[in-house]
Design a protein around this nucleic acid. Structure first.
Lengths: 161, 161
DNA sequence: ATACTATCGTTTCATAGCTAACGATTCTAA
DNA sequence: TTAGAATCGTTAGCTATGAAACGATAGTAT
């Protein structure tokens, strides 16, 4: 342990806490740092060329796979709020990558669908995205990749994420 | 495998890609989903009370631990851009949680430091934050927590995140 | 000394992202 | 049928976020 880490722990131990769980801290810290690096790298090195953010990309991916999806479900799938979906689909619509339509059976509902242009973008972009994905994960062996996915999946499930 | 997953794979397999690495996809997907859930939960259930975002909190934490830090290093540590640090410290300054000062030896440099009020906030907030951290990680055994941290650390290191 | 370069942090400008509030629609109960 | 509740998506208003450009300062080479 580095001396500065020791100092940090001493500071934290003075607080009114039952205990200081260093393993839990490491889990949270590493998860977030990894995700941050992942997102930044993808946005800078893959998505920037298409003017898409990580979330825009993930929404466009959902539309590509699912064809036509309720706004509400897009929010759930991407893990962001409904207003964010409104904003992003608006941006995607301006770029003519998707369009919106209203359900006539229940006029409260709005569906979002991908355009041919959007499909073209994804067909071009996805292979590049996946290539990076593979590169990033390849620091680990296949067995380790399965292991880390499994553990994260358990965390996601137990915490309802 | 679910039928819709099968369909998805069929769609992806039609693209001009050398191969489709499902393990890599699972790694990336689960990392990001976990981080998203983590951040949302913390912001809504712990940080909202103090009007802090995840990044604001992590910056204030750095200041708390390190006392006085260059803007540049804050950006590195939090994994965000320099303008973001500028904005966030400006917000924190408005709330009187931190203040800025210039280095007189090298007047290009700016340091940020935590105020007494900021220290008070952290002393109150950190135990609550840590409690949640522990709860979230407790879906896994200690051995599993160490395992997932280790694997993520390897990914972070190899990818320079 | 004087340009040229590098390094800071900030400003500008656009999108992303949240909560809260809203308007429209549908459902439900009296 | 009609008032009240529930459920959509959007709007309003704020902070967060990054790329690009900028102004100020410091280092470097001639």
């Amino acid at each position: 342990m580095l001396p500065e880490e020791e100092e940090t722990i001493n500071l934290l131990m003075k607080l009114p806490m039952e205990s200081l769980n260093l393993d839990a801290i490491a889990v949270v810290t590493n998860i977030y740092r990894m995700a941050q690096g992942l997102r930044n790298k993808m946005e800078q090195e893959v998505l920037a060329e298409y003017g898409l953010s990580w979330t825009s990309f993930s929404i466009l991916y959902d539309l590509w796979i699912g064809n036509s999806i309720e706004t509400r479900k897009l929010a759930e799938s991407a893990g962001v709020s409904k207003p964010t979906i409104s904003n992003i689909t608006k941006t995607l619509e301006r770029k003519e990558l998707c369009y919106r339509l209203t359900d006539n059976r229940d006029r409260r509902m709005a569906y979002v669908a991908i355009t041919d242009k959007g499909r073209g973008v994804m067909e071009d972009l996805y292979p590049k995205f996946h290539k990076r994905e593979v590169e990033i994960a390849s620091s680990l062996s296949v067995a380790e990749q399965k292991k880390v996915s499994g553990l994260l999946r358990a965390l996601i499930k137990e915490n309802n994420f």
